[in-house]
Structures are given as C-alpha cells and as structure tokens.
C-alpha cells in the first residue's frame, strides 16, 4: 500500500514539499488507526463477554444450555427455556417471512412496473425504519388483541385438541412474538432478495422468455436458480436479526420461562431475559449467567452473519465457471 501512495503522490513539486511535515503519512496513519480501532473494538467485545461469563461457564458448563432451571435465589442457572423461546420464535418468523419476502422481491423486480415498484419498495423499506419499541407498543395494543380474537380463538376452537394450538387464547405468547419478528425481518430479507434478483443477468431472463416461458416460468427457471444462494444469505441474515431482537419480543412474548408445546402459550427469550433482569442482577454469578446468555446470542449471530455474507458474496461473484468468452 505504501508503494501505491508514493507512486500517486510523486508530483513535480515533490521536492519543496518534502521539507514540510509529512502530512500525507500522518493522515494515512490516522485513518489506519481508525481501522485498527474498529478491529480492536470487536476483539474487546468478544474478550469481555468471555471474561465476564467465565464464572457461569465454569460453574454450569454445558448444562447451562440444556438446563431449564433459572433460580437466582439459589444461584442455579440454566438457559434452556430462553434458548428454546428464542429459537422457536425466530423459526416462526423465518417460516412466515421467507415466502412473503421472496414474493415481494419477485413482485417488485419482475412483475411491477417501475412507477409502482419504486414507491412500494420504499414503503417496505420503511418497515425497517420503525424502531423496535414501537413494534412492541403496537404489538401490545393492536396486534396481540387482533391475534387473540381472530387467529387464536377460531383456531383454538377448531384445532384446540392439537397440542400445538392448545391452551387459552392469551394473545401474548410465542405465536405473537414470532409473527411480530416476521414483520420486522421482512424488509431485511426483501431488500437482499431484491438486490440479488436484480443482479440476475437480463440475458438469462431473456433466454427463458424467448423460449416462450411465462413470467412465472422465467422466474422459476432463470431467476430463482440463479438467485437461490443469495436469497438464502438474506434469510440467514434475517434469522440473525430475529434471534437478537429484544424490545418487541420482550413486550409480547409473555416473559415466562417455560417450554410448552402450544404456540399460544407465553414463553421467554434470551434477549428478553437480559433486558428484564440485567439491571436487577445483584450477585456475581447471576450477572455472569446473564452475560453468558449474551455471549451465546453473540456467537450465534456472529456465525450466522458470516454464513450469510458467504452466500450473498457467492452470488455477487457469479455462478461457478462464469461465461467463458
């Protein structure tokens, strides 16, 4: 990189400037320091999380993940119920958000005329701009009552005998949390899918079209196979976001650390337990256990982000082999 600079900054007046303070070097050093700082920041976050959770990691070991016992009074901590809640609510979100988001992305890029797709795309992006606490507020007072009345009651009446839909229609609970998460990650998956789909070469689409493919067939045979792994990347990114989402989940999931078969039952999540209990955690082992929950959350999202990048990047690079010319 030094070579690059020297080459570029060699100017006719280089001699006279050489006597002055080496501003070029200083400026570059400052920007380089900023980069180092960013790397160190992440390193420090990881270090701190490992350090401060070691008390809990040493004491509970692997049992921390499987055990359901979360008893601050007796100093026993197992995050099983929180992990369960986080995973199940995120899975509900992914299952619902994926088809909807891909549908939107396809509609906006392949079907809708530009005068429609631009404003509608903008509106979908707005969903991402709404703060999560507002999702929570809307969830408590609008969405949850709606779910209770129009989804849980009728389903419970008809299918209440299936464990998945058993129990009283409380509204608050796993289903509502999953659905709100779905709404929150739709703009993320949609945005990435749109980018990926619009990067599918026009020539691919036209190839299918010229064969007499309908619009859907063009999507099925030319667009989707090409965009598949990039969309998968978007889905993983959305999953990462859902796993770490705190406020909206805390406000509608019910905050009860239980594992129930029913989607209607209240549950809890990893991010929610940190938000609810962190500032009340008085003794060291309690705090350490909560930090371990945070560490687990961090590690999972860290890996998911890495995976997502890999898939998206593999599409951006083009298919294996590429078109030889």
């Amino acid at each position: 990189m030094d070579k690059d600079i020297k080459k570029k900054s060699t100017t006719p007046r280089g001699k006279s400037n050489a006597k002055k303070i080496p501003l070029d070097k200083i400026f570059q050093a400052i920007t380089f320091t900023a980069c180092l700082g960013v790397i160190l920041l992440l390193g420090f976050i990881i270090f701190k999380l490992f350090m401060e959770s070691s008390l809990s990691v040493d004491k509970f070991g692997f049992k921390f993940i499987t055990s359901m016992e979360w008893d601050p009074v007796n100093g026993e901590f197992g995050a099983g119920a929180y992990i369960f809640g986080t995973i199940v609510s995120s899975l509900i979100a992914i299952l619902i958000a994926t088809p909807v988001s891909v549908g939107i992305a396809l509609y906006l890029t392949e079907i809708a005329p530009p005068w429609l797709s631009t404003p509608v795309g903008f509106l979908v992006e707005l969903l991402a701009a709404i703060p999560s606490v507002i999702y929570g507020l809307w969830g408590i007072f609008v969405f949850v009552p709606f779910i209770r009345q129009y989804i849980q009651k009728p389903i419970g009446d008809l299918f209440g005998w299936i464990p998945l839909f058993s129990g009283p229609p409380l509204g608050i609970g796993m289903l509502s949390a999953g659905l709100i998460l779905a709404i929150m990650i739709i703009p993320i998956i949609t945005a990435i899918s749109r980018d990926i789909i619009s990067s599918v070469p026009t020539l691919q689409r036209e190839g299918a079209m010229a064969l007499g493919a309908t619009r859907w067939e063009v999507i099925k045979y030319a667009t989707l196979p090409f965009a598949k792994s990039g969309i998968l990347g978007g889905i993983i990114l959305g999953m990462g976001r859902a796993l770490g989402e705190t406020m909206a989940v805390t406000m509608v999931i019910g905050n009860r650390p239980e594992i129930k078969a029913s989607l209607f039952a209240p549950a809890h999540s990893m991010a929610a337990v940190i938000a609810n209990e962190f500032t009340e955690a008085t003794d060291d082992i309690y705090l350490s256990a909560l930090i371990e929950v945070g560490l687990l959350l961090f590690l999972v999202t860290f890996i998911m982000n890495g995976l997502a990048r890999f898939f998206i990047w593999s599409v951006a690079r083009g298919p294996k082999g590429g078109i030889r010319q």
């Binding site: 960013v38 990462g240 770490g244 961090f298």
Partner: peptide, 15 residues
Amino acid sequence: VADSLLGIPSIVVGI
C-alpha cells in the same frame, strides 16, 4: 469486522 458489528444484537452491545 464492520459487518459483524452491524449484526451484533443491540442488547449485547448494552452488556
């Protein structure tokens, strides 16, 4: 690293 920071759950930043 920047992408990873972007993906960290905000509650973990709080911790």
